[in-house]
Design a protein around this nucleic acid. Structure first.
Lengths: 182, 182
DNA sequence: GTCTATAGATAGATAGAC
DNA sequence: GTCTATCTATCTATAGAC
């Protein structure tokens, strides 16, 4: 039943979301998918096999999520939209878990290079929409700020995280715009 | 022998550095410290007990490391110094490992709030040194960029990471300075 | 081809020896 | 107070049943 593969993937993402990489175990995933652990290994012989496929799916989804930001046409709108994505802890947990895995599993790094490149391209498009010249420095600035805010917000779990992120992004984008024209 | 506590802490940090949070197990730490696992639990009854003390040490050290950046008096020097710290993967691994743990263990979050606040204060001092008005947005921008760069560099493991980070930080700081005077 | 019982390794914690 | 043997739970992987 090919359907099982799908439910294993869904369950894996749910586990990563809720428990992080440390909680990503075959028994847990199998239970969440309604299978026995020994059955799961039929579809994904090793833990890494599963992790690779899960990472593939997660990275693709993350790029799709970033696509949703591109339409913003004002600096303020862009800032608030990026901020709202950055403080979505479910996303952050999955990506962070995979990032740590990538540090140990070189095979995963390729996915993260792909994700990073994809985000840079999209950041460039956003900047063009905002009438800001898309230098690599500016694109990388947006990317690193978003990632940093997501991580900081996850670790500190503060109430005003989203507003603060939005304000800071808006200030940075405004500053870029001035730099571009002056 | 109080000395054992110290070697357990050193061993713990070494494990987090090399293996991340997933590799942080009592048997591994004990072996690295030259003790039996069952002896380790005498000093630190549960895994979380040990983690809390390790986090305390790691956060303090991180703040000390950040203190070393404050002396920079030019934008370029500040950018290159921050970049060199950001791409030090040993640091990043430890802090990231603890950040993920903090997401699961609320008791750890207080440490991260302390770290985040400490970094904001230090970022403010640095900005003053650079003749840039230290708004909260600018401080948080520096903080989030540094964190993001560290994480991205860890996950992608690219060669030009440090140079790119330095260039981007320099551009951001320069942009802030223009914003401050114009 | 699909699924499971079971082995083999490793984790964390405790009761108790010295 | 210091240290260890040992128990229980949990993990990954494989050999083999259907």
């Amino acid at each position: 039943m090919q359907d099982h593969r799908q439910s294993i993937l869904s369950a894996s993402l749910a586990i990563l979301r809720e428990k992080g990489y440390a909680g990503f175990t075959q028994p847990r995933v199998a239970a969440a998918a309604g299978l026995r652990q020994s059955h799961l290994t039929y579809y994904f012989p090793t833990r890494i096999d599963l992790l690779m496929v899960v990472a593939r799916v997660a990275i693709d989804r993350q790029l799709v999520a970033v696509d949703g930001i591109l339409t913003a046409s004002s600096v303020r709108k862009a800032a608030t939209t990026i901020a709202s994505v950055a403080v979505r802890h479910e996303n952050t947990r999955v990506i962070m878990a995979l990032a740590q895995a990538a540090d140990q599993e070189p095979a995963l790094r390729e996915f993260f290079r792909e994700l990073a490149d994809g985000i840079i391209v999209r950041a460039g498009k956003l900047l063009i929409n905002l009438n800001i010249e898309p230098t690599d420095e500016r694109c990388y600035q947006l990317h690193s700020m978003s990632v940093g805010m997501a991580v900081i917000d996850l670790a500190t779990a503060r109430k005003n995280g989203e507003r603060r992120a939005a304000r800071t992004l808006e200030a940075a984008l405004t500053s870029m715009r001035k730099g571009a024209t002056g």
